[in-house]
Nucleic acid binder design. Structure first.
Lengths: 262, 262
DNA sequence: CGAATGCTTGACGGTACTCAAAGATTGTGG
DNA sequence: CCACAATCTTTGAGTACCGTCAAGCATTCG
């Protein structure tokens, strides 16, 4: 089969746990994925050198606690997670969703104080780095520093988009936007299986991400489902009418470029 | 007068234009401000080396056009600006506000495509850098790369906060939050004059930042003014009851740390 | 002084929120 | 394996917050 000029993001075996042993990054199953940029051997070794361990966090548990600076940084290796903030009276806003390859915890480095929390939506596996090594990474491996900035800037763009959604879109538009966005991102890292992607979120998550109430989120999603735009079945999402959802959400498929992987 | 242990952000002469001549950064009036971290001479020289020119943009004009990658990066030297996105039907969302010391245009470097626009709210002056030098900066001056990341992470935190505001706060809470936030940030960079800060925004700007309609923004602001919480007079803002506004907005004064200045 | 722009107010309607309770699904222990 | 609990989803009813429309007022500018 010939390669098309567009990078194809094909399905890949689900990488559940990072490889064990003394040289895990050299056998990283995530890095095989064309969603990620190739990397010179020297930088791969540097990453492997700074990578301290693997951590598993169960679905629903906290990866980074709100209001507490984490001494570690993470690369999400498998599973879904999300960043959030809560107000004192308990109102919660989900800031953005995290997929394999996303880099977690950077903001705390520069935080004046209060930051966000990060929670696992599925059971997740993480590659662990020490925050205290961060400056050394920038210093000795400027390319990795640049890559970290790349990932931070991309994350900011997601939050920008979510702010536009929460501030300026109607409930139906918000749902359309979010489903398309999450589907595309999951597809991109090879999490699609015959038109379905794992979708472990409850309606409460959707509501908290979109700035809607739970009840209204439910009614909006039901009505879009009745229109035949998508289906959610036992934790998996299928987009039935991508054009309708795109138009509704004013969301257009910008081909996502391969990203660096730390 | 003895220095207190807390950094004091005193008033400074309003720096309108960056110094001219062959060595402008060495006489930078902005850098005198304790809101910014001190910098070693070698790094200052590097910044001066990459700094290409000064640009002035009039109030209301565009600094960076939406949907077009800017070949330049900027440090805002004086004035107010803001980042925004618009939907196809014209709905606009302001993402965050920019004050002196903020670094503009970084996201475009890593953008898959569509990004934000940046508009001057007052007449602004900018220090101009070339985007194509960015990697060289990271490579030859890792500390500056780290500082750029610092600034990017801080900006993301502002957007995070704005998303919480748009998603989860009532109209009155949103207004309270925004006014406190802008006042504090302006105060921090020495823009306060006898309890007032320059506030060049129309109610349409506030509405676009908060995800509210113009009319409702007006009614909400009027009611908070009638309660005696703040005043806006000919483009200047005064906070009359900071405690009430803080409580209303669930906003707490986290002392803002000195930031790097590129 | 008139036009343009921005601010303010009232009236009205609709989107989205709250309250409440009934299904559906999942998990757990006997 | 079933029964029961717990959690999540769904629906209805009533309300409130906020959006839209419309028009008058204030300020600025040429």
């Amino acid at each position: 089969m010939a390669y098309s000029s567009q990078v194809q993001f094909e399905d890949h075996l689900k990488p559940v746990m990072p490889p064990q042993g003394p040289r895990p990054c050299e056998h990283c199953a995530l890095r095989i994925n064309p969603a990620f940029l190739p990397i010179p051997a020297s930088e791969l070794l540097a990453i492997q050198n700074y990578r301290k361990s693997t951590r598993v966090v169960e679905a629903g548990r906290t990866i980074i606690e709100e209001h507490r600076a984490s001494p570690q940084l993470f690369t999400l290796y498998s599973g879904w997670a999300f960043r959030y903030k809560t107000l004192r009276d308990g109102r919660r806003q989900i800031l953005n969703f995290l997929l394999p390859g996303d880099f977690l915890g950077l903001q705390d480095e520069f935080a004046d104080s209060f930051t966000h929390g990060v929670e696992a939506a599925t059971t997740v596996t993480l590659c662990v780095f020490e925050r205290k090594d961060l400056w050394e990474v920038f210093h000795t491996q400027p390319k990795l520093g640049y890559d970290i900035t790349w990932l931070a800037a991309r994350e900011e763009k997601f939050v920008d988009d979510n702010l536009v959604t929460a501030g300026r879109r109607s409930a139906a538009e918000r749902v359309a936007m979010l489903l398309m966005h999450l589907y595309r991102r999951a597809q991109r890292v090879g999490m699609e299986r015959e038109g379905w992607v794992e979708f472990p979120f409850q309606q409460q998550h959707i509501a908290d991400a979109l700035g809607l109430s739970l009840v209204h989120t439910n009614k909006t999603m039901r009505s879009l489902q009745r229109l035949g735009l998508f289906r959610i079945d036992r934790g998996w999402l299928r987009i039935l009418d991508p054009l309708a959802l795109q138009n509704l959400g004013d969301y257009f498929d910008r081909p996502l470029r391969p990203a660096p992987l730390i």
